[in-house]
């Protein structure tokens, strides 16, 4: 499991726009970079990030090798009702990690 840093508010009022910050540990090997022996390291990147909340997709992102190592992403969502925020990263070599956080809307 890759280490993940998440900054997600735990409570909100209906209609609030919440800023969500995510960071996941990953090398994002571009597939263009030769190692010390001059052999090009095979590509190993995250390809897709998906965030769902209240049963609907908040946003999804497609990454290219131009995304820096340890991909950092900030986006917003509109609080509607208490529910689970699901964050999912998928990538090369079968990488698939899901994190969930509960959001309480008062």
């Amino acid at each position: 499991m890759a280490r993940v840093l998440l900054n997600i508010p735990a409570r909100a009022y209906p209609g609030d726009i919440l800023v969500i910050r995510t960071l996941i540990q990953h090398v994002m090997e571009t597939g263009y970079r030769p190692d010390a022996d001059g052999v090009v390291a095979p590509r190993d990147i995250l390809r897709r990030f998906t965030c769902t909340y209240d049963g609907e997709v908040v946003m999804e992102a497609d990454f290219s090798p131009a995304i820096a190592a340890n991909p950092y992403l900030t986006f917003t969502l509109t609080a509607t009702r208490t529910g689970t925020i699901t964050l999912r990263w998928q990538g090369d070599n079968g990488f698939d990690q899901t994190e969930t956080r509960e959001l309480v809307v008062v």
Binding site: S64, P71, T74
Partner: peptide, 21 residues
């Protein structure tokens, strides 16, 4: 290509921030 971000109906604002190479 660097990044593509698609927004669903729950997105609050059309904003994206990340780190690139």
């Amino acid at each position: 290509h660097v990044i593509t971000m698609r927004f669903g109906p729950r997105a609050g604002r059309a904003v994206l921030a990340t780190h690139i190479r």
